[in-house]
Structures are given as structure tokens and as C-alpha cells.
């Protein structure tokens, strides 16, 4: 299968965005508390997985739409955090553009996995960093308090991204690796 241009919104891409958003929105209800006001959110792994599978556009839009959908069912839309989710999803998808990386075909180099882990973590820091800065400017939140919250949330998010997200991508890669040379054992 040929990789499609990342800017081409064919029907499958539209559906991938919608399903990715649904999963992200749904899993946002789950949080494993580790510290006050900070929890491990398994939803972050959806951004890792959908970014890796479908690229930055799907990552960006499923992050944004998923966040809005979650907010719509919980009362208030936090636009700054919508942007954070979107940027994180975009970053998770960057590795998709490497020719040696394809989850669907089970292909990835060690470098690709490292890129996914590192660029994804950076995207989480940058994305939710921007959200925090916006909260300071738009809502007038106290910078020290935001910094503390941001640091805790980033650590939690990176943990989920690396253990759960990258872990699941590795699992999917194994599942999809072509199964040639299989021999029936005695």
C-alpha cells in the first residue's frame, strides 16, 4: 500500500480523525490519580497510536476534536487545552513521515521508535506548555502555580506516552509484521 499525502483528506482519513477523536474523548474520562490535580491519563496513548498510524494531520485533528467532544460532555470547552491536545497529536504524527516507518506494514527502525518517544514527549511539553501560557494570559492564572501544574502534568503525560503509547505501537508493529518463514513445529 502506498502512503498517501498527509494533506489529502480522503474518506478514510476523515473517519480515522473521527474514531481517533471518539477514543481520545472517551478515554479522557479515565484518570489514574498519582498526585493532587494530576493523574495518568491513558487517553494520551491514543494520540501516540493515532499519530503513529495516520500521521500529523490525523493526530492534530483527533486531538483537537477529541478534546472538544470530551469538553462538550463535561460542561465547558477549555480552548487552550484543546490546542495543547492538538499540538501533541501533531507531534506524535511526525514520525509517520519517515519512509522507514509504517505501523500498518509492521516496519520501523530503532531510530523511528526513539523519534516517536522523544518527539512525542517534546510535543506534549510544547503543546501543553502553550496551553499553560495561554491560561496565564487568557485567564490570568498565577505563573508559579501554572508552572508547577504543567511540570507535574508533563511528567505524567510523558510516562503514559512512553509506557502505554509507545508500548502499544510496538505491540501493533509486532502484530503487523509480515509473517513469512513460519514453520509448523513438531
Amino acid at each position: 500500500m502506498m502512503k498517501q499525502s498527509i494533506f489529502n483528506l480522503d474518506t478514510k482519513t476523515v473517519v480515522a480523525i473521527g474514531i481517533g477523536a471518539a477514543l481520545y474523548g472517551l478515554l479522557n474520562w479515565v484518570s489514574i490519580p498519582v498526585a493532587p490535580q494530576t493523574g495518568l491519563r491513558p487517553a494520551i496513548a491514543i494520540l501516540t497510536i493515532f499519530g503513529a498510524l495516520f500521521g500529523p494531520i490525523v493526530g492534530f485533528l483527533s486531538g483537537a476534536i477529541g478534546h472538544i467532544v470530551f469538553d462538550l460532555s463535561s460542561g465547558t470547552i477549555w480552548w487552550s487545552w484543546v490546542l495543547g491536545s492538538a499540538i501533541s497529536g501533531l507531534g506524535m504524527g511526525l514520525v509517520f513521515m519517515s519512509k522507514s516507518f509504517s505501523v500498518k506494514e509492521g516496519r520501523a527502525t530503532k531510530g523511528n521508535i526513539a523519534t516517536l518517544a522523544i518527539v512525542g514527549s517534546l510535543a506534549l511539553v510544547v503543546g501543553f506548555g502553550i496551553s499553560s501560557v495561554l491560561d496565564i494570559y487568557l485567564f490570568g492564572e498565577a505563573p508559579d502555580k501554572m508552572l508547577l501544574q504543567f511540570t507535574a502534568a508533563s511528567l505524567a503525560n510523558i510516562t503514559v506516552h512512553v509506557i502505554l503509547g509507545v508500548g502499544a505501537v510496538l505491540g501493533l508493529l509486532k502484530v503487523n509484521r509480515s509473517n513469512s518463514n513460519l514453520k509448523v513445529s513438531k
Binding site: K174, V175, N176, R177, N179, L182, V184, S185, K186
Partner: peptide, 11 residues
């Protein structure tokens, strides 16, 4: 399934 014990499930 014994003959397939070392196979990946996906196969």
C-alpha cells in the same frame, strides 16, 4: 495448536 506454538497470533 501445539504445532503453531511459536507463531504470532496474527498469522
Amino acid at each position: 495448536l501445539y504445532s503453531y506454538r511459536d507463531w504470532p497470533v496474527s498469522a
